[in-house]
Amino acid sequence: MELRRRIVDSFNGKWMLISLIILFILPLVIGTGLYLKSIPLLEHHSLRQLVFSTNWAPSRSSFGFWSFISGSLYVTLISFLLSLPFCLFAAIYLTQFSSRFLLRIMHPVIDILSGLPSVIYGVWGILIVVPFIGDYLAPALGTTSTGYSVLAGGSVLAVMCIPYSLNMLIEIFRTVPCGLREASLSLGATSWEAVKHVVIRGNYPGIIAAFGLGIAKAFGETIAVMMVVGNVVSNSFNPLDPAYPLPALIANNYGEMLSIPLYDSALMFAALVLFIIIVIINLIFRFLIHKTRKK
């Protein structure tokens, strides 16, 4: 083989391998980097105290993340409950009942919805969702609220996560063999019953995984939530009260974190917690999806 060709070939081949390896080192580097940064905090406080204490006073060096973690969980739960019917029914309609034409329209719709930046959702939330909750919903329920609330954060998040889960659900429902559905129809089932018994029941793991990944995405979402959720620790279960989710905590305090001892370490620890939770959720549910795809 000509020398030049051989050199080009081996160089290119090596670079391909190196780039793949870089990709694999990336999560390890992120994990260890954040861990190294949060070591100073972990030396002073026990892990249990950090995660489960609600006592947050950086200037007196007490760091309890529980109110932020629970705030995140609450917003995520609301968004999950709101997005569940949309995702499930839209996916069923698009894969089972709809015309090809509608499907052709929906593809760009889903693409654009998932491509819109989170700031835009935040702006929309401030313009529409927050005033709606503050001016109409809260008075109608007999309470007062500024509108900047868990419910506002949850609804904005729900809209953001719908395309994500919906895409996966559509992909999963498409893999249901046609014959199975036809067999069910020929035995006298109505088309909804066929969907209920064949499409939904046969795909439990896939459906759970799609929603799980949606939850993971919602849990880590920062800017959009931060703009509408109020960013005040309230520790109440009223969805019309504000909350302070974990990502918002990191994003709001980066400016002052170098002026207070251990503060930067605490925020890096918060990022590490977020990273670990989301990677674990992702690993579990991605595994479920890969399993269903193989079948």
Partner: peptide
């Protein structure tokens, strides 16, 4: 398939974590 699975997981990491890591 394993590589794809890991890459999908990587895709799910939120941007704030990348931001914090970049800052560190």
């Amino acid at each position: 398939n394993t590589i794809r699975f890991l890459l999908d997981t990587l895709w799910g990491i939120p941007s704030i974590v990348y931001g914090a890591f970049g800052f560190a």
